[in-house]
Design a protein around this nucleic acid. Structure first.
Ligand SMILES: [Zn+2]
Ligand SMILES: [Zn+2]
Ligand SMILES: [Zn+2]
Ligand SMILES: [Zn+2]
Lengths: 130, 130
DNA sequence: GAGCAAATGAAAACATTTTTCAATTACGAG
DNA sequence: CTCGTAATTGAAAAATGTTTTCATTTGCTC
């Protein structure tokens, strides 16, 4: 999903395609797993309040995802399903595609829980920090 | 691991067993997955700063774990290995023991990543909220 | 182009966590 | 048991992060 497609879905949802929203979406699309600070740095022309509101809006529409990996929220474009490797030394976040929950292995029936989504994070040391 | 054992390990680490630390540990042991607010409510006699510092200390010693499930940090005694079911409607957190990463299924060798720990969260609707 | 609801952003409010520092206290040595 | 001392506590202030307010601006439809 590229920047244009995201803006298209925004419009489709009845929201305005403002220059500020273009900027924020471009910033998010530039790199996955960015913090608020990093996103803001890529949007010098957009007020902080608008960045917060745009993240909230896009996330509500399911176009981006908020990550809780410790050390403050991070954001990513909601594209493919994947999970995260978090380096506890340098903080770098990378992805892996093999989903441990994929084959419906996990039986939650005895919990009476209706699963909607899930997240898997592996913490450790990246190849650089070892 | 009961309250006494945690305090023992604290002492063993060269830290003092103060009445405030007893209170905080007792509060944490009373229920898993509590927020700061809930823990504080169980420690009326302990200053906020001390609660923060004690959580930091215990977590540094690996005696408790901090959970990032969205909606602010939660804390639990570090006992058995388990993962979490988070209800997106009422916010209730429950546990399940079957670990999807258990059999070493996950091959991270091509990432050159040294895994230390992991977390798995399943989001959805609990039996009450469905 | 006019009209209007939606959107923006500066400032203020609010919430949460950390720092500071003077007073207190647990605990080992004597 | 008492003393000395470094560790600990907590009130206040500072720092940090996020949300609300509201007057002004603007994208979009007709
Ligand atoms: Zn990712
Ligand atoms: Zn998955
Ligand atoms: Zn738990
Ligand atoms: Zn596990």
């Amino acid at each position: 999903m590229d920047v244009g497609a995201v803006m298209g879905k925004l419009r489709g949802g009845g929201f305005k395609a403002t220059p500020q929203r273009w900027e924020v979406v471009r910033a998010i699309a530039a790199e996955q797993h960015q913090s608020m600070e990093e996103i803001r740095a890529r949007c010098p022309g957009v007020g902080m309040v608008t960045v917060y509101r745009t993240l909230e809006l896009l996330s509500g529409l399911g176009l981006i995802r908020r990550l809780d990996l410790g050390g403050g929220p991070r954001w990513e474009l909601a594209e493919d399903h994947h999970h995260h490797l978090v380096c506890e030394s340098c903080g770098d976040v990378t992805e892996f595609d093999l989903c441990p929950l994929d084959p419906g292995l996990l039986d939650l029936s005895d919990h009476g829980f209706e699963a909607r989504s899930h997240s898997v994070e592996v913490y450790g040391r990246c190849s650089v920090c070892q």
